[in-house]
Nucleic acid binder design. Sequence first.
DNA 1: GTCTATATCCCGATAGAC
DNA 2: GTCTATCGGGATATAGAC
Lengths: 191, 191
Amino acid sequence: MWRHVTPDAARRMLIAAAHAFADKGYHATTTRDIASLAGMSPAAVYIHYRSKEDLLFQISKIGHELSLSVLSDVPGKDPVERLSNAVSSFARWHAEYHTTARVVQYELGALSPEHHATVVELRRGIEGRMRSIIAEGVEAGLFDAPDLRGATLAVLSLCIDVARWYQPTGKRTPEQIGALYADLVRRMLMS
Amino acid sequence: MWRHVTPDAARRMLIAAAHAFADKGYHATTTRDIASLAGMSPAAVYIHYRSKEDLLFQISKIGHELSLSVLSDVPGKDPVERLSNAVSSFARWHAEYHTTARVVQYELGALSPEHHATVVELRRGIEGRMRSIIAEGVEAGLFDAPDLRGATLAVLSLCIDVARWYQPTGKRTPEQIGALYADLVRRMLMS
DNA sequence: GTCTATATCCCGATAGAC
DNA sequence: GTCTATCGGGATATAGAC
């Protein structure tokens, strides 16, 4: 997931920050916590990042881009299959990468106005892609969703909230959650 | 919602804290913010509460108790109607009281271990009530939910996440959200 | 009960040696 | 690039007058 981040120390710092932010929240995490988790001194944070907020922004940006990519070129021979695949992948992503997903979904408010605007744009893309998949099914007469935006909101909401309750020690694997959710959504929308 | 809290200054402080915690998060909120919102001096917080965390606990406890009460004695002539009423009320509560609901759902981690244990107990009650309503429908052969706990989790999750995305300036009223969600859940579970 | 003033601590970020 | 040491600011909570 962080494989493109270089050099090595910068990547370790980002991973440490993501874990700390997910665990305790952005404001409760100190730069000393992050440095310590990465096995470096408090000052080392500022060699690779301008500020603690910059660290948050990098995590948020990369996380949003990845969750957006999950909804790109979703395979499927018809809208029903495409929606199932989209929901299954998107829900599974929020379980599999629940650490990053929590930062992505719950620390938006700690971003600077400029950085916040950047990720809001990415979020618009995510909503747009899910909406167009649902819209295809509605146009083909396969889905019954009189309130298209409301249905899109509910589907995204269901998947996103997985990041809140998911526990790796729980009895459901990310794959099982994806399959369960794809089935629930199919029943929710099919006419 | 806070009508039982007395004296007046203590109630104003609790309301101020709930708004600040929901808006910026617990850790980003200072006791000066809270006092200032309540129109009092920074020291006044400690006349009515032992600490900032105590303020959070009171909000969390009252909020959990209220959202639990919403799932008590849900009316309905059959399991289908009872589930619709439960989902509609529970989702509506998370929209109507989204300020408190955000504190309830997203600031659990800032509670002391003892206080955290108390609200976890209340949360078990919430899950139990929703699960028994769904179980009634399964036993009557009306719902198709092979994974009862998984279905309960998904239904609660859908309603809870309303607190994250709901905006009073949006075009859907809490009542409309409740009705939309009751319908989605009914389709999700009915056999 | 409420205030002003302050004790005590810890945070984000920087300076400067190596 | 990484360290040790530290600055400047702001946090929670308390002391003591009224």
